[in-house]
Amino acid sequence: MNRRTALMMLPALAGLRAPAVLAQGRYPDRPIRLIIPFAAGGSNDIVGRVIAEGMGARLGQSFVVENRGGAGGVLGNEAVAQSPKDGYTLLLGGSGSFLISSLVQPKLSYDIIRDFAPVGFIGNAPNVITVNPKVEARGMGELRDLARRAKPPLSYASPGVGTTGHVLGALLALEFGAEMEHIPYRGTGPAITDVLAGRVQILTNAAAPLRPHIASGGLRALAVAAPRRLDFLPEVPTTVEQGFPKVLSSTWYGILGPAGMPEDRVAALHAALNATLADAAAKQRLAEEGVEIEASPSPADYARFIEADRTRWQEVVTRANIRAE
C-alpha cells in the first residue's frame, strides 16, 4: 500500500452512476469550464480531457476545456482562484503545476490551501529514475556511489525549475549526500533529447514519455520512485526495494475549484469524478498515460492529501534552497 492509498482508501465506486449524480438538482444548467495549466497535447491535456468527457456525461452538461499554460502552471491556477465561486470553473491540479510551483515561486496571488476547494484526486503516475546508458550505474546504490565521487558533479535534467523532475533530482542529491547539477529545460521533450545524447546524465519523469526510450535502450531505468513496481515496467525495481524508502515521487492529478463553492455542488462534482474513474474506458485511457487511479473517498480526503504532500516537499525545497527566478 503506497502513501496515497494510506491517506485515501479507494471508495466503493460501483454505486456512483449517472442517475445518482443527476439527482443533485438543477446544477449544472450550463457548460462547465475546465482549465488545464499546460498547452494542448501533453499528458496533462490528455488526462484532463478524459476527465472532462466523463464528468460531462454524468452531469448531463458539456465541459469546455481551456488550455492556459505559462509560468509553470501559475497562470491557470490564478485564473481559477479568481473565478466566480459557483462551480462552473474548475482546475486540473498537478503535483508540479499546482503544489510544487507554490513552494518555489517567490510571489503568488493565491494560496493553494486557502483559495481553492478540492473536489477529488484522480491518480498518480510514479516517476522513473533513468540515466544515459553510458553512466556506469545499474541501480540506486551504484548511482549514489558514482554521484559521491563524480568530478565534475553528475547532472540531472528536468522540464523546468520547480517541476516534479526538479525536486526529485534535488531529493536524490540530498539522499545521496552528493552534489548534483540541475539542468532545467523548457519541457520534457528537450530534456529527454539531451539525456539521450549524453549531454546530461540523469532524468526523472513520469513513465509514459520515457517508456519508448527505455524499451529501445536509449535510456536505462534504474528505479521507480514508488513503493511498488509499475505494471508496464515490471522489471524495474522500486526505490524502496533498493533501500531508499524516502525517494518517493509521482506526477499526480486532481480536480479543484475556487474556495467558497457551495458544498452540494462540490459533492456533485466529486461524485461525477469518481463515477468517471470507475468507468472501464476511462481507466484504460488513463492507464495509457501511466496514471494509477486513486479516487478519493471525499473532497476532504483530497484536501488532507494536498496538505501532507505540501509538507513533505516543503522540506526538500527548503533543504535544497530551490527558488524560481
Results as ranks from 00 to 15, higher is better:
38 F>A: 15
243 G>H: 08
90 L>Q: 07
144 R>F: 07
241 E>W: 02
160 G>H: 03
94 G>T: 07
200 V>L: 05
220 R>C: 11
39 A>P: 04
83 S>E: 04
188 T>I: 13
158 S>L: 02
248 L>Y: 07
76 G>I: 13
304 R>V: 06
6 A>Y: 02
232 F>Q: 04
170 A>E: 03
143 L>W: 06
303 A>E: 09
272 A>K: 10
202 I>G: 07
10 L>I: 06
265 R>N: 05
142 E>Q: 08
204 T>M: 12
301 D>H: 00
280 A>S: 14
154 L>R: 03
132 N>V: 08
170 A>L: 08
19 P>N: 01
27 Y>S: 00
196 L>Q: 03
282 A>I: 05
177 G>L: 05
65 V>E: 05
114 R>T: 14
91 L>E: 09
209 P>M: 04
218 G>Y: 09
246 K>V: 14
26 R>I: 10
102 S>M: 06
123 G>M: 11
89 T>A: 15
235 E>W: 05
232 F>W: 12
109 S>Q: 13
131 V>N: 00
304 R>M: 11
163 T>W: 01
14 A>H: 05
145 D>G: 07
296 S>V: 01
293 I>C: 11
312 R>F: 13
264 D>L: 15
138 R>L: 12
137 A>L: 01
153 P>L: 06
210 L>I: 11
81 A>P: 14
48 G>R: 02
75 L>H: 14
92 L>F: 12
223 A>S: 11
320 A>E: 10
132 N>F: 06
18 A>P: 03
239 T>L: 02
207 A>E: 15
73 G>E: 04
15 G>R: 02
143 L>H: 08
6 A>I: 13
183 I>M: 10
225 A>S: 09
151 K>E: 11
228 R>I: 09
31 P>M: 09
309 D>Y: 09
22 L>M: 03
35 I>C: 06
172 L>V: 13
92 L>V: 14
290 G>V: 06
301 D>Q: 09
174 L>H: 09
81 A>V: 11
317 V>S: 08
237 P>Y: 04
3 R>T: 08
308 A>W: 02
225 A>L: 14
257 G>M: 01
193 T>F: 10
194 D>V: 08
277 L>P: 04
311 T>E: 15
83 S>R: 12
187 G>P: 08
47 V>I: 12
19 P>T: 00
104 V>I: 14
110 Y>N: 10
44 N>H: 15
170 A>R: 03
45 D>W: 01
96 G>C: 08
301 D>W: 00
228 R>K: 06
110 Y>F: 12
8 M>V: 00
296 S>Q: 05
322 I>S: 04
294 E>G: 06
305 F>T: 04
47 V>Q: 02
253 Y>W: 06
229 R>Y: 07
290 G>H: 00
242 Q>D: 02
82 Q>P: 13
36 I>H: 02
260 G>F: 07
173 A>Q: 03
110 Y>D: 10
312 R>A: 15
276 T>C: 13
146 L>D: 06
167 V>P: 04
196 L>D: 03
300 A>N: 09
169 G>P: 07
104 V>Y: 01
119 V>M: 05
